[in-house]
Design a protein around this nucleic acid. Structure first.
Lengths: 218, 218
DNA sequence: ATTTCCATCGCGAGAACACGCGAGAGAATG
DNA sequence: CATTCTCTCGCGTGTTCTCGCGATGGAAAT
């Protein structure tokens, strides 16, 4: 079930001020054949110093309650140093403002120290595969906030073909390119686009694309 | 690690039209000493009929692609029958509108059939303990929708005027309308748009609008 | 003081689009 | 069997866009 380990292990960073827990975690990560944790620091500052010459860091586990720079404030600094890293918050905080701040700052996941080690390791794998591992209680918190903000999505009933064309338009393709890609004539695409205009109540491509993205249709 | 099993097992419902998968799931649930699945149906209608005399249902696993009533439409009906149930969507759909609709309808979690059986069983436990189990890719989708977007902002430095024009384009206005609204000539708007194209590396309005929205510039 | 950016304006040609007005085929629904 | 939907295709006209090639003036920076 673990990801294939033919290639080099994925570089994992760890920022956690409790020495014991940090060691346990580092050991757990290094016990996974496809992961390696060479940099485990007790603060954001120390981590940035430690990794001054490290070229790549794929996932960074970040505690929030740190000496010096607080974890949430550290997120942008870490992104500046490792723009492609995925930052997973790993902390005991489960208060909504902190959680939302961390996620708004760009964290790709939020785990709790109450989670089991294998849950955390699974979270790293999920982050590596493009997911956002969330502790289920954190997820619930986000969902309730989310539903409060976004009560109702106005249901637009586009056909499958219309959705397909819309998403291609949202990539910047012109009608002719879409026609080629779908192996239909320009006129067919044109007709679909007209129908989309009618359903979205717009009169040009950019308006359709805008509305589609804002409504989550593309 | 399993919840205590001193008390009666928790009642789990299952609505899934694929017979094989339904049986596998039911068996897996019944293999957990603290869970029991007595009602496993192939449609929302059948489930409501089956459980006509069932007093309590704690968690309902719900497929979306069902014969008859579609899963999302079934959520309110299930809630009417079992107001205290926690509904977990379990499906293959991972398209944003469907996911958001289901969660807006009150689903307490969203799992994918690609998830392992033990992940699903863990999801049930998490739901029972008040959490909202989310597949990590679904979680990521929600997060990105939730905060507009945050994936390593590629720092596009548009001028104020360019941003202004871009946001008007994102409302579906055409260049001439924008020119009127800003009290400048068409050519001015046109020039700004060209500069935007260069910075965003696109060659038409819809591509610019798409990129702008996805990058949070408009 | 020169350079660099920004916003403004202009023309023309060719491409792409918007839209009215069609049509036919196949599937699903009733 | 008629209707409705969806996808497919076609033409013509006027509108809009894209882009190359300019330009001027002001503000800020070096």
């Amino acid at each position: 079930m673990s990801p294939s380990s033919k290639s080099a292990p994925r570089q994992i960073g760890l920022i956690e001020d409790h020495q014991d827990y940090r060691r346990v975690l580092q050991q757990a990560i290094n016990s996974s054949p496809h992961l390696i944790c060479q940099h485990a620091s007790s603060s954001v500052e120390a981590f940035l110093a430690d990794t001054a010459t490290t070229p790549k860091m794929e996932v960074i586990l970040l505690d929030l309650n740190l000496p010096g720079i607080h974890g949430v404030a550290g997120i942008p600094m870490l992104f500046q140093r490792f723009p492609d890293a995925r930052i997973l918050v790993l902390t005991v905080y489960d208060h909504k403002p902190v959680v939302l701040e961390a996620l708004a700052a760009g964290a790709s996941g939020y785990l709790l120290k109450a989670d089991r080690l294998d849950t955390i390791l699974r979270g790293i794998d999920e982050a590596l595969s493009g997911g956002a591992p969330l502790n289920s209680h954190i997820a619930r918190m986000i969902l309730t906030t989310f539903n409060a903000v976004r009560p109702a999505a106005p249901e637009i009933d586009l056909t499958d073909r219309e959705r397909e064309i819309l998403s291609l338009l949202a990539k910047g393709l012109i009608k002719k390119e879409i026609a080629d890609q779908l192996s239909v004539s320009y006129h067919t695409v044109d007709t679909h686009v007209r129908n989309i205009y009618g359903k979205l109540k717009v009169h040009n491509l950019s308006g359709a694309v805008a509305k589609a993205i804002q409504l989550g249709l593309a």
